[in-house]
Simulated assay, not measured.
Amino acid sequence: MRVLVAGAGIGGLCLAQGLVRAGVDVRVFEREPGADSRYQGFRIGLDGPGLAALRACLPPRLHRLLEAVTGPLAGERRVVDQQLNELRKLGPAADGTAADRHVLRQLLLAGLGDRVEFGRAVTGYDATGYQERAGGRVEARLSDGGSAVGDLLVGADGVGSAVRRQLLPGAEVVDLPGNALLGRTPLTERLAALVPGAGTLVRGSGLSLLIGRMEFRRPPRLAAAELAPDVELPHTESYLRWVAMLPEPLGPGPEAWARVRDRLLDLLDGWHPDLVELVRRSDTGNSSPLTIRHARPVPHWGTGPVTLLGDAVHAMPPSAGQGANTAFRDAAQLCRSLTAVHCGEAELAAAVEEYELQMLDRGFAAVADGLGRLSEFTPAR
């Protein structure tokens, strides 16, 4: 059996790691030219089921490294005003794990080698005559004019998924109104006090700031050198991740982050100096405007040689912190299903259908949860 994966994001790579561990032939095709070609996003929080799913797919030799290059995510979540006066508590977060998306992606690439092909996006597929083909195979079309043939194509190519557009042309992804700015600021002793627990929400007039801490247990590059010398991780220092939520965009279209940051600083005039310092010291290379989207629910499409995973099917707002967790659970479940097929314990179509039905229920329940909680963080217009 050969599995083709569209997209080398964390969900697709988690699936690939699990399939390699099970002895299944897998190939991953990614549109980006390389693993470091763009900013990868912010700190993510992993809950118990999400972390367990990730560990189930990773080879055991990388488990100690995963522990070393993540951080704690626990303690009280609080709401404060713009002078840092506490307004209320949201309750303690269940013990979780904070992970940097870029570091985690590099870890998930470890050992995959030439199974991951950068600069070759899946642009579509041909499943004509699927039932009549020997072995029921599907052909993926690639952006460089090439193609690849496998038994199953998994669309893990994110919110703009080309695989989803062909499989589910009527599926909708909705851009939510308002504006969000994503920032990353080096962690200092002074700024660390802004987040004494799992997270801090700052409520201001027409503006909210969500602040979380990404404090690595060990520096990623040094931890890799000791625990898994064949794995190369980036030199990433601990930081605060923050998201500014505004009811309206700061300006028309994409702009240089430095200019957007300066206008945000104007809005923070009179706020507590530590909050102003948080934004002023943000890393311009790792901060950006952020569009918040969500997918509308879709019915089961009828199992065939193509399926979907993660944001490619159930993109969700970050307000419930379930995007990465749900993608890892998708990956682990699909890996178990395909492993059973590989071992002769299940038929491919039945195994994939069972995965899809559970994935749709789980994924769109998480979307609804995220939408229900979004108002907690969105400022009034």
Rank of each mutant, 00 (worst) to 15 (best):
R190C: 10
L191V: 11
A180F: 03
D95T: 12
V79E: 15
E139C: 00
A156Q: 08
E117V: 12
T123K: 07
D144W: 11
R137V: 13
A99P: 00
Q106E: 15
K89E: 15
R115P: 04
T185N: 10
R164N: 04
P169Q: 14
T97V: 10
N85Y: 07
D95L: 01
R77D: 14
L182H: 13
S143A: 13
L104H: 03
G75Q: 06
G160T: 02
A110Q: 12
A192H: 12
L176H: 05
R77M: 12
E76W: 02
V159G: 00
L167C: 02
G146C: 11
N85I: 08
L168R: 05
L187C: 04
L104R: 05
G91T: 09
H102W: 11
L112H: 06
G75F: 05
D114M: 03
E132S: 04
V80R: 01
L153D: 02
A134Q: 14
T188L: 04
T185Q: 09
G96T: 10
A171W: 10
A171L: 10
G146V: 09
T97F: 01
K89H: 06
G158R: 02
G124C: 12
P186I: 14
V79D: 14
G146N: 07
D95G: 01
V173L: 05
S143E: 13
G113Y: 02
L191H: 11
A110D: 05
D157S: 02
A156C: 07
R133M: 13
G146H: 07
R78V: 15
L168P: 13
G113M: 01
E189I: 02
T185G: 01
A98K: 03
A156H: 09
E86V: 01
A140R: 08
R164G: 02
S161L: 05
K89F: 04
G129M: 04
D81Q: 01
L104F: 09
A180G: 02
V149Y: 11
A134W: 12
N85K: 03
L142K: 08
A93L: 13
G91W: 13
R137C: 03
A93E: 15
L176R: 10
Q83R: 00
D144L: 00
L142F: 04
G111K: 03
V103S: 07
A140S: 05
L108T: 12
G75I: 08
G170M: 08
G91M: 08
D95E: 15
G75K: 01
L153Y: 01
L191C: 06
A99L: 09
R120E: 13
L168I: 09
A140L: 01
L87P: 08
A110E: 07
E76H: 00
V103E: 15
G124F: 03
R141E: 11
E86D: 09
G129P: 14
A94N: 11
A148L: 12
G146D: 15
R184L: 09
G183Y: 03
A98T: 14
L108A: 06
V159T: 05
Q83A: 07
P177C: 03
G145H: 13
L187F: 10
G91Q: 11
V122L: 07
E86T: 07
A121M: 05
G129T: 11
A99Q: 06
L153C: 06
D126C: 02
R164W: 00
E86M: 00
A193I: 09
L191I: 05
V163H: 01
Q106W: 09
